[in-house]
Design a protein around this nucleic acid. Structure first.
Lengths: 123, 123
DNA sequence: TCGAATCCTGGCCACCCGGCCAGTTTCGCA
DNA sequence: TGCGAAACTGGCCGGGTGGCCAGGATTCGA
């Protein structure tokens, strides 16, 4: 019975803003096929805030830097990034250096963490 | 009036499971006051997966591994971690090695990214 | 009592990383 | 028509990283 694919979808409302949470609760409360989870209940999916954290002025990264950053977040080494982007390792290092500078990070791990925190990338 | 509190809520559907995503899209598609975001659009909130399949039982990490992992997420080097925890660099490497193994990561950056994705740590 | 797990440490070594120096091309804008 | 920004490449090098080997100490449950 737990494998009933057509059962109603349980949504966990995880919004800090009370006003927004209330509005969503009201709107979703009487939609057939959807049910809001009671506190602590295992939900199928969750609704989380999305507008606040991406607001504070995205850091100005070039397209190439974003390419490199995305691959860094995948755990790729400079060599792998170079191969994937079809450029040399030296160029990758060049972009990584710019990234560390712009993101105020001490290393690639820190850079990915900072970028994720600021919403520049999604993990 | 962009500050109209009663404007429709834009939801970003971020569900990997195609079937679930389709069902949610169908159910939410004609709810007054709610609109699904087009790709790339700035949404008010996001709907993310939250069932058991996406939370495959927290990885069994020891307390010490969690200590090391947290410092790694701060961008700390092995040497820094060693100093902070009062242990040798060799021991830090030992724990980092275990983390890479348990988190199925290729390097410390990948390890932090994986851990963040699985909710083991908060960035 | 005997493992098993966890935590700790050391040496060794190939490789990676980040920073330094230098240069080239292409593009858009003033 | 210059000029800066972006992208790209190279050499060099000190230090960091990760994997391998070896060991020892502790606790806990079978």
């Amino acid at each position: 019975m737990s494998a009933d694919k057509t059962a109603e979808i349980v949504l966990s409302l995880e919004i800090d803003d009370p006003a927004l949470a209330d509005r969503l609760a009201a709107l979703l409360g009487n939609v057939a096929g959807i049910r809001l989870a009671v506190p602590g209940e295992q939900a199928t999916a969750a609704i989380v805030a999305r507008d606040v954290r991406s607001m504070p002025a995205d850091i100005a990264l070039t397209q190439r830097e974003l390419d490199v950053l995305a691959l860094m977040a995948e755990g790729a080494s400079n060599k792998m990034i170079a191969r994937r982007l079809g450029i040399s390792v030296h160029t990758v290092k060049f972009h990584v250096g710019s990234l560390l500078d712009k993101l105020d990070a001490t290393g690639r791990t820190d850079a990915v963490a900072h970028a994720a925190r600021r919403g520049v990338i999604e993990l």
